[in-house]
Design a binder for these strands. Structure first.
Length: 262
DNA sequence: TACGGAAACG
DNA sequence: CGTTTCCGTA
């Protein structure tokens, strides 16, 4: 399933300059009753706000707003990972404030969103106005050491990456729904903030989870994986490589599988 | 409303 | 590099 791929060790080491698109990590937590090695894309791994380093990226910001159910400006859509920008200009203003760009507007923000298409972070939900979708479909959370139990992970009523309102929730008891969600899409954990957080402060996750403080920097060999201490690596996101069929309809696939441009 | 090239910026 | 800015095009 995941053999034969370029691997990186998600801790520290900065010797190699090798490019790495995916990183590999240990095993799923026993919580998921599985034991598999999984890959995750670097975009999903990059820390939101490392102490001294990286700036907030737009998708971090979006997840933050979505996670704390900020309301008005943006909210989850009906499908998994889908979100709707309810007030584009307000969202742009918030983003502008965060980035210190007072002249931010939706035109510019949406350009930034469009740059995510090729990076596979987002794609557009066609036909639905102001509606985009995160590439969460194949994301998996693994190896979450401080993970209490599945039930505690996502509480009923917590913000999840799709709206619970109409569908599904009637089928399950709140507890079941919570457990179900945490299993099927645990990725959202870090973004399900119990309360609004002031951004540059210590992320509640950050202290506990190395993932959010130490970006992956180098490549390592499969053999080195044996040195990986599962419990040092806290929260991992994974994506299978064959996921993701976005632009099939239009047929215009710009930079995909070795097909030269032009 | 949405897309994407191009240039510029920090 | 990840946008920001601007703009022609559909």
């Amino acid at each position: 399933m995941v053999s034969g791929l370029l691997l990186t060790q998600p801790d520290k080491c900065n010797t190699s300059t090798e490019t790495h698109r995916f990183s590999l990590i240990g095993q799923l937590s026993p919580c998921f009753c599985l034991s598999v090695a999984v890959l995750f894309p670097d975009w999903a791994y990059k820390p939101a706000w490392s102490p001294g380093s990286r700036q907030v990226q737009l998708w971090h910001f979006l997840l933050e707003l979505l996670g704390r159910g900020e309301g008005g400006a943006i909210s989850w859509g009906s499908e998994w990972g889908e979100f709707v920008i309810r007030d584009p200009e307000r969202l742009a203003k918030l983003w502008g404030e965060r980035k210190g760009k007072p002249h931010m507007n939706y035109d510019k923000l949406s350009r930034a969103l469009r740059y995510y298409y090729n990076k596979r972070i987002l794609h557009k939900t066609k036909g639905k106005r102001f509606t985009y979708k995160f590439n969460f479909s194949k994301l998996i959370l693994v190896n979450y050491p401080n993970l209490p139990t599945c039930q505690q992970v996502v509480q009923p009523g917590a913000s999840v990456p799709f709206s619970l309102s109409s569908q599904g929730s009637s089928l399950y008891s709140p507890q079941d729904t919570a457990a179900l969600l945490s299993i099927s899409h645990p990725l959202l954990l870090p973004y399900c903030f119990p309360k609004p957080l002031p951004f540059p402060q210590v992320h509640p996750i950050q202290g506990r989870f190395p993932l959010f403080s130490a970006p992956p920097t180098s490549a390592s060999n499969l053999s080195e994986l044996s040195h990986l201490t599962p419990f040092n690596n806290a929260l991992y996101l994974a994506q299978t490589l064959n996921g993701w069929s976005t632009k099939s309809s239009t047929g215009v696939f710009k930079q995909s599988h070795g097909t030269g441009k032009e």
